[in-house]
Structure formats: structure tokens, C-alpha cells
Computed example of a mutant assay.
Amino acid sequence: MKFTIKIILLAFVLQSMQCEEDNINYNNITQEQLNIKKQEILNYISTFSCADASSCNSIAFGAKPCGGPREYLVYPNTVNQTTLETLVNEYHEMDSAFNTQTGAVSDCMVVGPPNTVGCDNGVCTILD
């Protein structure tokens, strides 16, 4: 009996130690959750600065209902690329799930990467 109780308690402890991101319910995404996740990504990017245009990159962001990204984010190459890609991939999964559950439609226009990015006062920006 004591062994069974210990196993049950251990299961509860392990369950409570899961990462918050692992608890995202992709079956019930809200616009507010998307907004919060996007702001988290923008806040992460804003903690880094650029020195010149050559230190800026872009990454596809979001998921249009017809496929392809909604937009591109620009960021300095001083960010941790793995962290940024993880955050952007989480957003993409959330956005795709939201599109499916809401039956979203879009113009299906292809959004290409920016032609020219620059560095303005330490912030990467799209110039075209």
C-alpha cells in the first residue's frame, strides 16, 4: 500500500514539473494566446542589437491558412538562433492550429522575405 501511494505521489510530482510550453493545448488556441506569444518573440528579439545591416537576418513568421508565412521578422544575428527558431516554431504551430479551428481563410498571396534589411539605431528593420 505504501509503495502504491509513493508511486502516485511521484507521478503527481513529475507531472507538476513539466515545462509550461509543453502544456499548450493546440486544440483550443485563442487570438490572445497568439498575441502573447508574438509579443514574447518580439521582446526576445528586442533584447539584442545590431551594429550594421550585415548583422541583420530575417525569419519566416506565422502561418497563412493557404500555406506559407504571414510575414517575416528581422532580427540581429546576435540572438541565440536555436532559441529564436524554437519560439517561432511554437508560434507557427499555434497559428496553424488556430487557422484550422476557426476555419480561417486568407488571400493566399505569397509573402516573400524582405529584399533589404538595415540597422537603425541598433534595431534591425525592413527597408523595402
Results as ranks from 00 to 15, higher is better:
2 K>M: 07
2 K>T: 10
3 F>S: 14
7 I>W: 03
7 I>D: 07
8 I>Q: 04
9 L>H: 08
15 Q>L: 15
15 Q>V: 11
16 S>W: 11
16 S>Q: 05
16 S>M: 08
16 S>T: 10
18 Q>F: 15
18 Q>S: 15
19 C>V: 15
20 E>G: 14
21 E>H: 15
22 D>P: 06
22 D>R: 13
23 N>Y: 12
23 N>M: 14
24 I>D: 02
25 N>P: 00
26 Y>K: 04
30 T>H: 05
30 T>N: 04
30 T>R: 05
30 T>A: 02
30 T>C: 03
32 E>M: 13
32 E>T: 13
33 Q>T: 07
33 Q>M: 11
34 L>A: 02
35 N>A: 11
36 I>D: 13
36 I>A: 14
36 I>W: 08
37 K>M: 12
37 K>R: 11
39 Q>R: 11
40 E>Y: 06
41 I>H: 07
42 L>H: 05
42 L>T: 08
43 N>D: 14
43 N>Q: 15
43 N>W: 02
45 I>W: 06
46 S>Q: 11
46 S>W: 01
47 T>I: 03
47 T>W: 09
48 F>C: 04
50 C>K: 00
51 A>D: 11
51 A>V: 11
54 S>A: 09
57 N>K: 14
59 I>R: 01
60 A>W: 06
60 A>L: 07
60 A>V: 02
61 F>D: 02
64 K>M: 02
66 C>S: 15
66 C>H: 04
66 C>A: 12
66 C>N: 07
67 G>R: 02
68 G>R: 03
68 G>N: 02
69 P>T: 12
69 P>F: 05
69 P>Y: 01
70 R>W: 09
70 R>K: 14
70 R>E: 12
72 Y>S: 10
73 L>M: 00
73 L>Y: 00
74 V>K: 01
76 P>A: 07
76 P>F: 04
77 N>C: 01
79 V>M: 00
80 N>M: 05
80 N>Q: 08
80 N>V: 06
81 Q>C: 12
81 Q>V: 14
82 T>A: 13
83 T>M: 11
85 E>Y: 08
85 E>T: 12
87 L>W: 08
88 V>R: 02
89 N>V: 08
89 N>R: 11
90 E>M: 08
91 Y>H: 01
91 Y>G: 01
92 H>W: 10
93 E>S: 15
94 M>I: 06
97 A>D: 06
97 A>G: 08
98 F>N: 00
100 T>W: 03
100 T>R: 10
102 T>K: 11
105 V>A: 10
105 V>P: 04
107 D>K: 04
108 C>Y: 06
108 C>P: 07
109 M>C: 15
110 V>S: 14
110 V>E: 15
112 G>N: 10
113 P>L: 06
114 P>G: 01
116 T>E: 09
116 T>W: 06
116 T>F: 09
117 V>Q: 01
118 G>D: 08
119 C>N: 00
120 D>A: 15
121 N>C: 08
121 N>L: 10
122 G>Y: 04
125 T>R: 12
128 D>R: 05
128 D>L: 04
